[in-house]
């Protein structure tokens, strides 16, 4: 329950950053997506039930603040959380570099899913004209933001238990390695 509340609060802070703070300083393509980072993190670090719940919850929050139909990001983030959960048992999730690589992969997967769903279901053909040129900037923005978060976490957390945990950024779930 505590973890759920932490994800909820983090999600609300993230959406506030995305909708009201980043637009003041960054063009659309260069705005990072902290919610996506949270979803991937939840997929890698928690149980499957938590990953699914967090994916749906954060997807609903993102849907409320973007586009015009509830459900698009619920679907996308749920897929991302499940994919991350499946990969967590097969990869060395302790590695920060790998985490950033997964964020890059997650960003690509998100763009592809959004593009396909909008084109097929919403008849929004021109969305690919917006999405495709933005891929490099989006990947770069998300990876850099993850790196920035990682730096902040390791600098602010005192050496010891928290910092050792931060090396991998992840706390392993009970199912890890099962």
């Amino acid at each position: 329950m505590t973890a759920f509340v932490v994800y909820l609060v983090s999600g609300l802070v993230s959406i506030f950053l995305q909708s009201s703070v980043f637009p003041l300083f960054l063009p659309p393509d260069l705005r990072p997506n902290p919610l996506l980072i949270l979803v991937v993190f939840a997929g890698l670090s928690g149980s499957t039930a938590r990953a699914v719940t967090v994916g749906v919850l954060l997807g609903a929050i993102q849907d409320s603040f973007s586009g015009h139909s509830l459900g698009l990001y619920i679907c996308v983030f749920l897929t991302l959380a499940i994919v991350a959960r499946l990969l967590a048992d097969k990869l060395n999730v302790e590695s920060p570099a790998l985490f950033m690589l997964l964020i890059a992969g997650g960003t690509l997967l998100q763009i592809v899913l959004v593009g396909i769903l909008l084109t097929i279901l919403a008849d929004t053909r021109t969305v690919f004209y917006i999405l495709l040129p933005s891929i490099p900037q989006q990947v770069l923005a998300n990876v850099l933001f993850t790196f920035f978060l990682f730096l902040c976490f390791t600098r602010l957390t005192p050496a010891g238990r928290g910092r050792r945990r931060a090396r991998g950024l992840l706390r392993l779930g009970k199912q890890h390695g099962a």
């Binding site: 995305q18 637009p23 603040f65 586009g67 969305v127 999405l131």
Partner: peptide, 14 residues
């Protein structure tokens, strides 16, 4: 205008 879209592909404002 008090806010913008939270995604990079959609263009909405609040």
């Amino acid at each position: 205008v008090i806010g913008e879209d939270a995604s990079n592909w959609s263009r909405t404002i609040v």
